[in-house]
Design a protein around this nucleic acid. Structure first.
Lengths: 336, 336
DNA sequence: ATGTTCTGTCGAACCGATTCGGCGAACCGA
DNA sequence: TCGGTTCGCCGAATCGGTTCGACAGAACAT
């Protein structure tokens, strides 16, 4: 079922079939109808590889995801889903490549085998060799999160520093003087993971600015660690009256530990942070939090499409600073 | 940087470069070294589209996922991750296609544009038109979950019926007489979603076999619905002493409702079911449950690779029936 | 009647790989 | 010394599309 077969059956040349399909040159209505009839009958669709070879583009986007060993957070999952959805809307396919572990063959295939027109890179480190590699090969790319020197690249990101600072200010306005930051895991922080580092810097700055007392701790990304983290906090810093967090996976554990210790939210302890909306809403009581927009992936795809079209244009960035949604988990300092 | 450029610089013909790379014909060591040197210098990699066109295969697998609107469960996520990982090990790439919503253009591109060598289809309905479509086009495919008439197709699946029955028997052995099944959402059951339906049939059968009293309810896939479901259960069927479930997303809500109502597990109520291991382990107390294997995706990929190699071979199936892991959430019937 | 423009179609080149048939040189045994 | 193999390489065809130049015929202006 190639284009030649269609041409023969319709009694025209191969180029005419091509033009009838693409509309790039005029074709008489009569001919177009005849061609279309044959196409419908045989359920013909042009071979993607042949088209890609001739056109020099694949109509495919590469999405580099963290390896399966690191389990994806809900936010990352939302991101992948919205990327795929947005690409589908633009009639683009998405090729997945696990990377960051030892699957570098996959990454190499995707970036230098010209399998894709552009790449979206998630889980960026502040110093990331994959970015360097992409710049070398000249493949258009957009990162989710940004590196230490972000001016030369395209990216979308959440402004963790500002958002965490806003959370601190919100708590300070309510009268809180001693606040804890529950960050992501120690390994992530150590490896230069942007969100974790920027959350910390936003936290320390805001704490200093308001003259408060701040405690920051790392917490692995699971419920058990969350429970342990809350226990440790109440043990070592019993005077803390509010918590700020970006660690979604720890929330169920925190919830459990709170109930076990009979700590009432927000009467005894206020909780807020930067979280995917559904995590905030699933907590009891629902968490006052900056909701990370789920359409980040959509914006990344738009940016990438734009970059593919005009690679010489100066790189653009999108930094999201969503407003804090007031729910029920923050309140005035408890009286003792 | 095409193969002609390499040939010119190495002073050989294009075919020699190709043979040096593939090893399909003898090439002298001297020539091979010279070619390799040029390739390394220019960082050359063959154009994937050209190769796919000539070879008639793309070295790419298609993975059809549910659309983003339905949020993926953790089990599905594990599955996607393990598919991508297994494909990468076999030097295959994975093309994502959201389908089941209204993005059928994407599905059509993937299956009939010869963009992939084979397809993995997840979230199968008992009657699924996508399966019919794939059979029409003759693209090799493997489904995760199976349709009403499963003999003609390749699939991997979890034997929900048997596993849920085993859970019931386990509880019956402990003395429980009145057991509830917390199923997935009513819509899923209504739409003919296999796991939900087979869980139900396994449940009813085992209940009848042991002469027990069974209650089955549907529960939306989120924490709030989980809490509501447990409340309803304790309200309408206060004599229930054990719960069996396959609804992971409802667990945090169930946990919360239990703690609020001061119901002790397993002293007042036993809980078990078929769940991804990490959900079972994150519960307090850890749930006795049949752990759904995380490597399902690996098996699906293996099966698909096999099917691509020998499409005429009779279709194979893999039905998983993992043993129940005894943890701490089931115990003898409470004395009143 | 003649020259010009416009329409619709065709043929051929091309994208970048793989692969088959063939060919010269080296090597073998008789 | 000569016929037959083997080895290593080359040239050309091929996969299935897209696109450019050419061209016949109709429409139109002069």
């Amino acid at each position: 079922m190639n284009i030649g077969e269609i041409a023969r059956r319709a009694g025209v040349s191969r180029s005419t079939v091509s033009y009838a399909l693409s509309g790039k040159r005029a074709v008489s209505d009569e001919t177009r109808r005849r061609v279309q009839a044959v196409i419908d009958e045989l359920d013909y669709r042009p071979n993607a590889a042949a088209r890609a070879l001739k056109e020099g583009r694949t109509r495919t986007l590469g999405l580099v995801i963290p390896p399966a060993s690191l389990r994806l957070t809900d936010m990352q999952l939302d991101f992948v889903a919205s990327v795929v959805e947005a690409a589908a809307r633009a009639d683009l396919d998405v090729l997945l490549s696990p990377s960051g572990g030892d699957h570098d063959r996959s990454f190499e295939r995707v970036v230098s085998g010209r399998r894709v027109d552009g790449v979206i890179l998630m889980e960026i480190r502040l110093e990331d060799e994959r970015v360097t590699r992409l710049q070398q090969t000249g493949v258009p790319f957009v990162t989710i999160g940004h590196t230490a020197n972000p001016d030369g690249t395209c990216w979308v990101d959440v402004d963790y520093a500002t958002l965490i600072a806003r959370c601190v200010h919100h708590l300070a306005d309510l009268g809180h003087r001693r606040i804890a930051l529950v960050n992501r895991s120690a390994e992530l922080v150590a490896s230069g993971y942007g969100p974790a580092q920027r959350a910390l810097s936003g936290f320390t700055e805001a704490i200093a600015q308001r003259g408060l007392t701040g405690v920051d701790l790392c917490c692995a990304d699971d419920a058990t660690a969350g429970a342990a983290c809350l226990a440790q906090l109440r043990d070592e810093h019993p005077d803390i009256t509010a918590i700020v967090t970006i660690n979604e996976a720890a929330l169920p554990g925190i919830q459990r530990a709170l109930e076990q210790a009979r700590v009432a939210v927000p009467e005894d302890l206020s909780i807020t942070g930067v979280l995917a909306r559904h995590w905030a809403e699933d907590f009891r009581p629902p968490l006052t939090a900056a909701d990370v927009p789920t359409e980040m992936g959509t914006y990344a795809v738009d940016l990438l499409i734009e970059r593919i079209a005009t690679p010489e244009a100066p790189p653009r960035h999108l930094l999201f600073t969503p407003a804090i949604s007031l729910r029920a988990s923050t309140g005035p300092t408890p009286r003792r």
